[in-house]
Design a protein around this nucleic acid. Structure first.
Lengths: 207, 207
DNA sequence: GTCTATAATTCGATAGAC
DNA sequence: GTCTATCGAATTATAGAC
């Protein structure tokens, strides 16, 4: 364990600096400083900047949806499942918003890396959001809790409504200044609004 | 006019290269090549890279919502207005998706520039989407075409649903490969889905 | 206004001692 | 494994001729 400590310190610092500055804006020296190690060690452990960057991307993708879901959502009716999912998703995205923006930016700019990252990210349908939500939609429709809806449409709607605000947040906050307390209120309101919109759309009554 | 030709060539090339590569990834030489001029002229007309970058940001923001709206939407009932707006907005975003992603990325990373750009962008409520939609919502609610809804919520829902797919598109296309024809079909379907979702939510009957 | 040539700097990467 | 010292490439910016 101990012998990997430096390597992990570098990786953690690299994630931080790359996410903050982007690939081209990140400096090896700054990563070394953030990790508290000599710059040379970055090359010792990770060969060069490109390699380190790729490892950082893979780590970020691997950690993306680590802890949004847990087993305690398993037994819930779809309405409660959706409510809890949106609640957790917002909190989760609020923590990881910088990482999401970083991924969408860097992966859009480097098809080769994108391909590599996607290929290596094994998507387990039992633990990733897409698979879980799809299964839940089918199950709930079969039980008559909701009407039948296209998985792709519903998931795209949900993720658009959950994610977009956080990606645009720095710009939004410049136009409509909010302190952290106000932001927390806005997030709470958005959770309720998104749930209301989506649930009204799929619940059975009133078609 | 003629004497400004070189300056405009440089500006157009700079927009292209900055949007494609980001500020840190863009090279003055590449911009010069794209403009077909000597690299020195970039400094002659725009002093340095920072200045050119700032001018590029301002131009992109100024051109953002140039031609989505025209007067022929003025007389439409809200339902048709919404339908046409979403239709045009999607087409517009599809063209400018790279510019949107660039803005959200760069402005998030540079608060000082963000402040500068926002301060200089005069928002005319009669021609920008936010002002127009707000006025339309009030008008339609007063006429009884739709129920009363919060402007901020509705606009955030609309822009989330319109924009997010395009920001995530490179990643989506890697996971679900689509040729251009397939993409056009998907966009068409998303237009219909977004309209359906939003209209069902605000129409009067069935609350 | 435009060009060539080059200065000045930053940064990734490596050599080699310990 | 870690450090110091330094190389060499890339890149922005400028000096000065035309």
């Amino acid at each position: 364990m101990k012998e990997k400590q430096v390597e992990q310190d570098i990786m953690n610092a690299a994630v931080k600096v790359f996410v903050e500055k982007g690939k081209d804006g990140a400096r090896m020296q700054e990563i070394a400083d953030a990790a508290g190690v000599n710059k040379m060690l970055l090359h010792y452990y990770f060969k060069d900047k490109d390699t380190l960057f790729l490892e950082v991307l893979k780590k970020i993708v691997a950690d993306l949806y680590d802890d949004v879901f847990s087993e305690d959502l398993a037994g819930l009716p779809f309405k409660e499942f959706l409510y809890v999912f949106i609640d957790r998703h917002f909190d989760f995205l609020n923590k990881k918003k910088a990482a999401f923006q970083f991924l969408l930016w860097e992966l859009s700019r480097n098809r080769a890396v994108l391909k590599d990252v996607v290929a290596e990210s094994y998507i387990d349908p039992d633990t990733n959001p897409f698979g879980i939500i799809s299964a839940r939609l089918d199950e709930a429709a079969a039980k008559g809790e909701i009407r039948r809806v296209g998985h792709a449409d519903f998931i795209m709607n949900l993720f658009s409504l959950d994610l977009f605000m956080f990606i645009a947040l720095p710009v939004i906050r410049e136009i409509y200044p909010m302190d952290d307390e106000k932001l927390a209120t806005v997030i709470k309101q958005r959770k309720a609004e998104v749930f209301r919109l989506l649930w009204n759309d799929i619940k059975k009554d009133c078609v």
